[in-house]
Design a protein around this nucleic acid. Structure first.
Length: 568
RNA sequence: UGCCCGGUGGUGUAGCGGUAGCACGUCAGCCUUUGGAGCUGUAAGCCCUGGUUCGAGCCCAGGCCGGGCAGCCA
């Protein structure tokens, strides 16, 4: 039932629903809806709404959540988006069963309702131009004025409206408006527009209509037609609720309850279709599904799991104050999920050759590695070992700082699952002075990684063999914006100032353990000691592996270094 | 400057007149064949001023601050 029963407290919306159930306001029904306009891709902000609407419905026996496309504006909508939206909602893990609807399915009913409003003397055809209407509307502090067409006769209104439908007038010639109150302090009630002429084909109704209903008229009445009980929307529609109610009451039809909640905001990114579109169009990202994008398709390609996103939406909660959630929480939710479920592998991002001088040339052996220490049922695998290996460049320092537990001249470390090795020499590039090869000796008695005498070895390094490892490209992603709250507008038309220039780093020379050769797109691994990486679902091919870093592991060493750099 | 909504640690969120809690983040420690994970601990909060009350984060009044609204967009 409600989450109250499970020990956690209900948010204000669930409380309202629980109360409505208690008073039997809707005959025990719970019907919600997720109403996207098919004019763009879904993002993490929509996920909050999806989780809320579908979540609330699922919490009650018989509860359902409709997926309804608010396709009332053919000039900006496209079927391409209705497909991607359905895909994303399904991917997130929700099911609308057979409740897939389109506002355009109701055009005929909505038209009849509009005529009914006219007959009740509550709507009229206005023939002012768009500019005149704006002018007559008044301002936030001054009342508007009545349109000279406001008192047209019922017959004339009906006739005009029917001819609007018939396509007799060009765009903008007339509109249908509600007759409410041009002096209302609520701008939405100053005779809002109900229908406008748009002589363009609609993606679903084709040439059937020359007039299309506006959001306020279509939305609430669609809710009513579908017998929605709770119509959950974001805060900016709060001022629209009196209008929502006005239509329902004036037409004396079934009356759902609109409830508003705060939309999601996230640090280090932007969350509006307009701004996201800008990033795509300016080429700041590779597309709507760029792994840095907060779109669901971007997050999916980045390696985010549906479960982690649902968990995130859960933790973010639902309330009315508008807030900005830290990206760190989203990342935490991903780590938490992947720690539990992602298989561990070894992958070297920046390879440095390591030769074990006393390990026989040509000899190889295998070690058993644990696939997931958090989940023994995931079993083990065998990984090959030999004389020539690669380790991470960062794991060797010729002149190690304090607290550096990794490899350095004379120091001993453990090669994960394999042997303890001690650095005995380095080979440098004569030109640059860079260390290009590290030489070690191994302790044959430390097979598996434990010292026979119990001596303590703090550092454990991941590695791959030179011969068996597989080449891969790895894309390292970071926040799209360097500031937590990016500069609001990018009106100039080019790249936003706060765009993080280091949000993508491509590594071409990576080596991963042999088993990854047949990794399939979309599968996610933990590269031990580094982070979680997903096989890119667009660019990875057999023989041309591409991994995206979803999120790094918590990096304590990085913090220590940071502290050493900035004492205080 | 009209109307509407909202202000609880750095962030998000509980608390419904009776000891201000949880999570993320921070810092410290423990543990560790991932400097991962885990565990323990630490610091940090009711916008302000009055009022009602034995008692106010919660109720009332007045301020202050933040957000939304003037599409033939949604």
């Amino acid at each position: 039932m409600t989450s109250v029963d499970s020990g956690t407290s209900a948010d204000f919306i669930r409380s309202v629903i629980a109360e409505d159930l208690r008073t039997d306001k809707y005959g025990g029904r719970v019907v919600t809806r997720f109403p996207p306009e098919p004019n763009g891709y879904l993002h993490i902000g929509h996920a909050k709404s999806i989780c809320l609407n579908f979540g609330v419905a699922a919490e009650h026996p018989g509860g359902v959540c409709h997926l309804r496309f608010d396709d009332t504006n053919p000039t900006r909508e496209d079927m391409e988006f209705v497909d991607s939206i359905q895909e994303d909602v399904r991917w997130l893990g929700f099911d609308w069963q057979d409740h897939l609807y389109y506002a355009s399915d109701y055009f005929e009913q909505l038209y009849a309702l509009a005529e009914q409003l006219i007959r009740s003397g509550l709507a009229y055809v206005d023939s002012l131009t768009a500019e005149e209407i704006r002018d007559f509307r008044g301002t936030l502090t001054e009342p508007g004025r009545n349109s000279p067409y406001r008192e047209r006769s019922l017959e004339e209104n009906l006739d005009l409206f029917q001819r609007m439908r018939a396509g007799e007038f060009e765009d903008g010639r007339h509109v249908l408006r509600a007759k409410i109150d041009m002096a209302s302090p609520n701008m939405n009630l100053r005779d809002p527009t109900l229908y406008r002429i748009r002589r363009v084909p609609h993606q679903r109704t084709g040439d059937a209509w020359r007039i299309y209903p506006m959001y306020d008229f279509a939305h609430g009445l669609s809710d009513s037609i579908e017998k929605v009980t709770h119509s959950l929307c974001t805060l900016e529609f709060e001022d629209h609720r009196p209008l929502y109610d006005w239509f329902l009451d004036s037409l004396e039809v079934y009356h759902p309850q609109q409830i508003e909640f705060a939309r999601l905001n996230l640090t280090h990114t932007v969350l509006s279709k307009r701004k996201l579109r800008h990033l795509v169009e300016q080429g700041c990202v590779s597309g709507w599904d760029d792994p840095r994008m907060p779109t669901l398709s971007g997050l999916r390609r980045r390696g985010y799991t549906p479960r982690s996103i649902r968990k995130f939406c859960d933790r973010v909660g639902v309330a009315k104050r508008d807030t900005v959630v830290e990206m760190a929480l989203l990342e935490h939710c991903l780590r938490e999920d992947l720690n539990q479920h992602a298989p561990r592998v070894m992958g070297v991002l920046r390879p440095l050759k390591l030769i074990i001088d006393n390990y026989p040339e040509g000899q190889t052996e295998e070690f058993e590695a644990v696939n997931n220490p958090e989940d023994p049922s995931m079993g083990t695998r065998l990984i090959p070992f030999s004389r020539a290996l690669y380790i991470e460049e960062d794991d060797f320092r010729e002149d190690p700082p304090s607290k550096f537990y990794r490899l350095a001249p004379g120091k001993e470390v453990r090669l994960r699952y394999a042997y303890l090795v001690t650095c005995v020499a380095v080979v440098k590039d004569e030109q640059t002075g860079d260390v290009v090869e590290v030489h070690c000796t191994y302790d044959p008695d430390s097979r598996g990684g434990t010292a026979p005498d119990g001596r303590r070895v703090r550092g454990t390094l991941h590695w791959v063999t030179e011969a068996d490892s597989v080449a891969a490209e790895v894309r390292l992603y970071d926040h799209l914006f360097s500031q937590p709250n990016p500069d609001e507008d990018t009106d100039g038309g080019d790249v936003p100032a706060d765009l993080n220039p280091n949000s993508l780093e491509i590594l071409q020379q990576c080596r991963v353990e042999p088993g990854l050769g047949e990794a399939t797109p979309g599968s996610i691994y933990q590269f031990e000691r580094q982070g979680y990486f997903v096989v890119d679902n667009a660019d990875s091919k057999p023989g041309g592996l591409v991994f995206n870093r979803a999120v790094s592991l918590r990096d304590t060493w990085a913090k220590i270094q940071q502290a050493q750099k900035n004492p205080a």
